[in-house]
Simulated scan of single mutants.
Amino acid sequence: MLSKPPLADDAGNPFDLLGSRRRRVLLARVSEADGAVPLDWLAGQLAADGAEQSTEAVTESERERAKVRLHHVDIPPLSAAGLVRYDPQRRVVSSDDLPLEGQEWLDMPVVEALEDWNGR
């Protein structure tokens, strides 16, 4: 079994890390996948969720804004915490061995789950 990496010092506090619904949706979508998730697909998912619309209704402009935000704001702290891996060259996000999966990131008390997973 793989060991779980401790939260990096720059990962921040779990409340800050997971207080954002966007980040929890990101974790939900990535944890449901059977491998690496393309950044473009993930941006469409998050833009649709934020606008409460279907992914087909997301404009290219909304998708591009979501990609920039993912790359610069949402993915770095999740990566620093060891929750996701991001390959900026391939523009894919992946994860494994997360304490929750899919919709659980949106329904359950995620901070407690993260602390349990991290061995605190």
Score class of each variant (00 low, 15 high):
Arg65Val: 11
Tyr86Met: 14
Val92Arg: 15
Ile75His: 14
Tyr86His: 14
Ser95Gly: 03
Gln103Ile: 11
Glu62Trp: 00
Asp16Gly: 15
Asp16Asn: 15
Asp97Tyr: 02
Gly102Lys: 02
Ser94Glu: 04
Gly102Phe: 03
Gly119Pro: 01
Val30Ile: 13
Arg65Glu: 09
Pro38Trp: 08
Val110Trp: 00
Leu18Tyr: 04
Asp9Val: 14
Met1Ala: 10
Asp34Asn: 13
Ala43Cys: 03
Leu17Trp: 01
Arg22Lys: 06
Val84Cys: 10
Asp74Gly: 12
Glu115Met: 11
Lys4Val: 12
Ser31His: 00
Leu114Lys: 00
Leu114Phe: 11
His71Gln: 13
Asp9Asn: 14
Gln45Tyr: 02
Arg24Phe: 05
Pro5Tyr: 01
Ser95Leu: 08
Arg29Asn: 01
Ala57Glu: 06
Arg65Gln: 05
Lys4Glu: 07
His72Val: 09
Val92His: 13
Glu32Ser: 07
Arg85Tyr: 06
Arg85Ala: 15
Val92Thr: 15
Asp34Phe: 08
Gln45Asn: 05
Ala28Asp: 05
Arg24Asn: 10
Pro99Thr: 03
His72Ser: 15
Gln89Tyr: 15
Ala28His: 08
Asp97His: 06
Gln45Ile: 08
Gly102Ser: 04
Leu27Tyr: 07
Met1Cys: 10
Gly19Trp: 03
Ala11Leu: 05
Leu114Val: 10
Asp97Ser: 06
Tyr86Val: 15
Leu100Gly: 00
Arg24Gln: 09
Met108Ser: 09
Arg23Ile: 03
Gln89Phe: 15
Thr59Lys: 02
Glu60Asp: 13
Val73Phe: 04
Ser79Lys: 15
Val92Phe: 09
Asp16Met: 15
Pro14Gly: 12
Leu83Glu: 04
Ser20His: 08
Pro77Arg: 10
His71Trp: 07
Glu104Thr: 00
Gln53Glu: 10
Asp74Asn: 12
Pro5Thr: 02
Asp10Val: 08
Glu104Ala: 13
Met1Thr: 11
Ala80Cys: 10
Ser61Thr: 05
Ile75Arg: 12
Gln103His: 14
Asp34Arg: 13
Arg69Pro: 00
Leu46Ser: 02
Lys67Val: 13
Glu56Trp: 13
Arg23Cys: 05
Val30His: 00
Glu64Gly: 06
Ala28Tyr: 04
Trp117Phe: 00
His71Cys: 12
Leu2Lys: 06
Ala51Asn: 08
Gly19Ser: 07
Val111His: 04
Arg91Asn: 13
Ala80Met: 07
Asp97Ala: 11
Leu70Arg: 07
Leu70Tyr: 02
Arg120Gln: 03
Asp10Tyr: 12
Val73Asp: 14
Leu27His: 09
Asp74Cys: 12
Arg22Tyr: 10
Leu100Ile: 01
Glu56Thr: 07
Glu32Lys: 03
Leu18Phe: 06
Leu7Asp: 08
Asp96Arg: 06
Phe15His: 05
Ala8Tyr: 11
Asp87Val: 12
Gly50Pro: 01
Met1Val: 07
Asp87Lys: 13
Gln89Ser: 13
Pro77Tyr: 13
Arg22Thr: 09
Val110Gly: 00
Glu60Ile: 09
Lys4Gln: 09
Ser61Ala: 11
Tyr86Gly: 15
Val110Arg: 02
